[in-house]
Every structure is written in C-alpha cells, then in structure tokens.
Design a protein around this nucleic acid. Sequence first.
DNA 1: CGTATGACGAGCC
DNA 2: AGGCTCGCCATAC
Length: 110
Amino acid sequence: MPEQSFFERVYAVVRKVPRGRVATYGQIARLCDLPGGARTVGWALRALQRGSRVPWHRVINARGSISFPRQSLQAARQRALLESEGVAFDQRGFVSLSEFQWQPRCRRRP
DNA sequence: CGTATGACGAGCC
DNA sequence: AGGCTCGCCATAC
C-alpha cells in the first residue's frame, strides 16, 4: 500500500463529519496529526473535483464563519448547503461552534 | 530545488 | 466589529 498524501488524509477525515455538524480547518489538521496545517487543509479542499463525496461545506474557520468572501457565490452556496442540513447562522453570519461543532467520540492513542 | 500559494489561526489594534 | 501582521505547511510551478 502506498502512503496516502496529506490531502487524502484530509478527505478521509472530512468524510466523517456528519450531516448538520461543522468542523474547523484547524480541527481537521489536528485530526490528521498536523497541528498548524490549517491552511493546507484549505488547499486540499480547494483541490476537490466537482462530484466528490467529500462534504467540504462542513468545514469552516475557527471563528465559526465561512472562509469565502462574504458576497461570493461560493459563500452563498456553502451557507445554503449547511442551512439545508439544519446548521443555524446568527445575524452576523456566524455558526455557534459550541452548538454545531463536530466532536469525534474516540481518538487513537499512539 | 527555491519560491509562491492559500477555503487558516492567534494575537493585536 | 473588522482588519492587519506573522507564523504555519503541503503542494504547485
């Protein structure tokens, strides 16, 4: 088995984020054993092809907001997808992480 | 192989 | 609140 790239590890983890929940870029990086790799997670998601099974829209930034420019079509699409899953945005466009952040049950211990 | 690139994050103003 | 700097790091070129 060839070693999977960091991107592939990111995709594997993001696929575990359940409907109606969100994760942050930094959270995904930590779950991939690369603390500080938040930007690289964004790079990985950006590289996704249309039609992938990776729920990229469930990944938002550490402040609970969408990391696309406010008025962009991408931001609107991501928000619509999240809202369709029941994720609520406040008046400023923020998601309450304490309410919606995904919390994996078990972690592997080396 | 050096430099550039980002869907980031923490801190500061 | 909103915007800036700086550190971060796997890929892209």
